[in-house]
Amino acid sequence: MSRVIRESVLSSGKDNINSEQLKGKLFLALCIAAILFGLLALSALLIYVFRDAVGWLNWQFITSPPSRFASKAGVYPMLIGSSFVIMLVAIFSLPLGVGAAVYLEEYAPKNFFKKIIETNIANLAGVPSIVYGLLGLGFFVSFMDMAHGTILVGALTLTLRILPVVIVSSQEAIRAVPDSQRRASYGLGTTRWQMIRSVVLPESMPGIMTGTILALAGAIGETAPLIMIGAATSIFTAPRGILSSFSAMPLQIFAWSDFPGDDFQHGVTPAAIVVLLVILLAINGAAIYIRHRFSKNRP
């Protein structure tokens, strides 16, 4: 380390200060260009998609089934499908994720077993989502013999997919609860579970909810795992229950993205994307609201 510094300082002669300053400016320009590349891409994406969606995104679009004819097409069944799946994923993943996090932070001794579980969770977070789709197909559909393409199978698959994220963010929220509060609770004679229920969980709930909601937002955009478990890319009737077959918003966008015809490419598809982005925006907004609402009440 120190050798590197010395060499570089010695080699940067005193006579070419100007060229060094020029290099510095070029480097800064490159850095700014790198940031602008991402930001411009984001702006271009949003501007184009919203511009093209104008005129197509209306009440009829939200309440109609898909159609061969662009003017009659809508996303109603997919909207219901996505909502159903996400609600189920929330119901499954919140208790499982928080429970696992509570175990790791409040019960588990700091030993090899805990380390294995945590390393394993980190690795699961890096598994490509399409592989979770294979897990859903091979385990729930083939092995458990559940009907393929149902809301239940989709929700179970996506739950396994987001569980690592929910666990890690819940762990962080639980870790942020000060130990003094735990000791105060024990001082009142509570048992460990009473302490967790009345101190740790209420205190860490805003953090847990924020992390979970953001993970759910990620799950709404998932496409590949749902294709693998046999969800339809397009469906004409809204699902009635958790054992109905279904399609979801991103699947319909996938189906429409290479539909021939300008009306689909520059009209119907952007309108569906705007619906999906608005849902994501609302969910992220809810997460931010919860974070602010509950952190304000702190002393």
Binding site: G221, E222, I253, F254, I273, L276, L277, N284
Partner: peptide, 9 residues
């Protein structure tokens, strides 16, 4: 956070 299908489109 933007879904990958949107990027594909």
């Amino acid at each position: 956070g933007i879904p990958t299908v949107v990027y594909g489109y």
